[in-house]
Structures are given as structure tokens and as C-alpha cells.
Amino acid sequence: MVTSRALAYLESKKNLWGSACGLLGLGLTVAGVAGAYWPVVVAGLYGAGALVAPPERTPPPPFERPSEQLDAVREDLGRLREYVAEVELPPAAEGKLSELLDVYAALLDPGWPAQVLAAEPDAVHALARAVRLDVPECVDTYNRTRWWTRLTPGGESPERHLERQLSVLSEEAERLTADLQDREARRQQTHTAYLEERGRS
């Protein structure tokens, strides 16, 4: 432990800057400037160099790259599909949910759509939240509420709530897709403007 700290200090910027300034002090000593006080001069210059050395840069933690995040969400979508396949849903909700999951799968396609998605952290977060939290919660609460409704019928049906929830998620997915499409359209327009400007110059 002590040895590793000592080695770390030897390689640190403080020691390197201090050593450089200390060598300057030795040079002054050889030139006859420091005189009898040369140890104080060398030590003082070393200390001054260590003080003015730039601070050590602590590297940021190695967070997941966007592509790695999408790989994880893609795997979670596969597990979500398996889960949904085991649950009995009303036909209308089942169809709507199938379409929604197909949209998620298209956005997560390993090709260029995923590259566009990976460039938008908010979109990645929204999609991950939908796959990992929103859709499973919709299906699970429907299942639970349906059981209680059989015991105490009346009130708004769980099927209606499920359809409303899936409609909201579908609208959210449409907005997400439209935003990504708009981003690509702006990129195309920017490139067109660049080429036209280059052609005029």
C-alpha cells in the first residue's frame, strides 16, 4: 500500500514539476549563484514547483456507451416479448401492444436506426423506461386488477384502462419516432446547404 502510494507520487505531476525546479536549483548552484545555501535553494525550488504543478486529472467513471445501452434495452425487449406472450390479454389491447413492441424493435434495430437513436440520450432513456417499466407495469396491473374485478364487478373495466395506457405509450412512441425523423431531416438540410454554399464559393 505504502509502496504503491510512493510509486504514484514519483509519477505524479507534483514530483515531476518539483524535480524540474530542483534541477534548476542545482544549475544555479553549479553557476555559483546559490552559494552556501544551495540545499535550501534546491528544496525551495522543488517545493515551489510541486505547488504550482497542475492538479492530477481524475478520469471519469467508465459508463456504458450508447451502443451498449441499446444492446441491454434490446435484450430487455426480448424478455418483455416473452413475458407478454404468457399473459392473456383482450384482443384489442393485444393488437395494440404488438404494434407498440414492433415500433420499439424497429427503433432498436442494430443498423443505422439504432445509431440515430444512440445520438439522443433522452430518446434512449424514454425507450428504456417504456420497455423496462411502463409496458410491464401496464400488463401487470391489468392482470391484478382483472382478478379483483371478478370478485367485485362494477366500475371502469381493467381492459379499458389497459387500452388507454397503451394508447398513451403509442402516442409517445410516435412522437419519439417523429423527433428522430426530424433530426435526420435537419441533418439532410444542413448538408444540402453546405454543398450549395461550397458550390457558390
Rank of each mutant, 00 (worst) to 15 (best):
D182V: 14
E88Q: 12
Q69V: 11
Q165I: 00
L133A: 00
D109K: 07
L180D: 06
V168S: 15
A178D: 09
T141V: 14
E163I: 12
P59M: 02
V124E: 01
V124P: 05
D179R: 11
D102P: 01
A123Y: 09
Q165N: 09
V103Y: 06
P110A: 00
R150A: 15
V124K: 04
E172L: 11
D122Y: 05
L107T: 03
A173Y: 09
E174D: 15
G111M: 09
A118Y: 04
L162T: 07
V73N: 01
R81W: 01
Q115F: 02
W147N: 04
D140C: 03
V103E: 10
P158M: 05
R175M: 10
P91H: 07
E163T: 01
F63L: 15
Q115G: 10
A106I: 03
D109L: 07
V124H: 01
R81G: 09
A185L: 13
A123K: 05
L97M: 11
R160N: 02
T192H: 14
A118W: 04
L127A: 00
R144A: 14
P90F: 02
R187S: 06
P153V: 08
R132T: 08
R81T: 14
H191Y: 12
P61I: 13
P90K: 01
P110S: 00
E163A: 10
E68T: 10
L89T: 10
Q165S: 11
R187P: 02
A178Y: 06
E88V: 07
T58S: 07
T190Q: 14
Y142M: 13
W147Y: 08
D182Y: 13
T190S: 15
R150K: 14
L133R: 00
A119M: 05
V116K: 04
E163M: 02
L108H: 05
V84G: 02
E159H: 02
Y83F: 14
A114I: 03
E174W: 10
S98C: 09
P61Q: 12
T149H: 13
A126N: 08
R65D: 08
S98P: 04
R146H: 10
A123D: 05
Y142C: 07
Q189I: 11
P153C: 05
E163P: 13
T152W: 12
T152V: 15
P66G: 01
V124W: 12
A93Y: 10
A193M: 07
R57N: 08
A93T: 12
G154Q: 05
T141L: 03
V103W: 02
W148R: 13
T145C: 04
L101M: 14
N143L: 11
A185R: 15
R65H: 15
A126H: 03
R146D: 01
